[in-house]
Deep mutational scan, measured.
Amino acid sequence: TTFEIRVGDLRITLHNADEEEIRWAEEALRRGIHADEILRTLEERRR
């Protein structure tokens, strides 16, 4: 599944994310964390 998060002009697309990952990514985007860093962190958490 694919889920797109939008916060203002910012956007990130997550693939195969669970609800916790989606909530975490949305909050991180709101705090101004760059999408590349969010994706990198999620990848590390999945390992």
Rank of each mutant, 00 (worst) to 15 (best):
T1S: 14
T1D: 15
T1I: 14
T2I: 15
T2L: 11
F3C: 15
F3W: 03
E4S: 00
I5L: 04
R6G: 13
R6H: 14
R6K: 14
R6C: 15
V7Q: 02
V7W: 12
V7E: 04
G8L: 01
G8Y: 01
G8V: 01
L10I: 14
L10D: 08
L10N: 10
R11Y: 14
R11N: 09
I12D: 01
I12R: 01
I12S: 00
T13R: 03
T13L: 05
T13F: 01
L14F: 03
L14V: 10
L14M: 04
L14D: 00
L14R: 00
H15C: 06
H15P: 03
H15I: 08
H15G: 03
H15T: 12
H15W: 07
N16S: 05
N16Q: 05
N16P: 02
N16T: 03
A17E: 02
A17K: 02
A17F: 04
D18R: 09
E19R: 07
E19F: 10
E20I: 11
E20M: 10
E21R: 02
I22Q: 04
I22A: 14
I22S: 04
R23L: 09
R23N: 07
R23F: 09
W24A: 04
W24G: 01
W24T: 03
A25L: 11
A25D: 00
A25R: 00
A25F: 05
A25H: 00
A25I: 07
E27V: 08
E27W: 07
E27S: 10
A28Q: 10
A28G: 08
A28S: 10
A28K: 06
R31K: 12
R31D: 12
G32R: 04
G32P: 01
G32F: 06
G32Q: 05
I33Y: 08
I33A: 07
I33E: 08
H34K: 11
H34L: 12
H34G: 13
A35E: 08
A35C: 03
D36H: 11
D36I: 11
D36G: 09
E37F: 08
E37Y: 07
I38K: 00
I38A: 02
I38V: 10
L39C: 11
L39S: 03
L39V: 05
R40M: 08
R40Y: 06
R40W: 06
R40F: 06
R40D: 10
T41H: 10
T41C: 10
L42Y: 02
L42P: 00
L42G: 01
L42A: 02
L42M: 08
E43G: 10
E43D: 14
E43W: 04
E44D: 12
E44F: 04
R45L: 10
R46Q: 08
R46D: 06
R46T: 05
R47W: 06
R47L: 12
R47S: 13
R47K: 12
R47N: 13
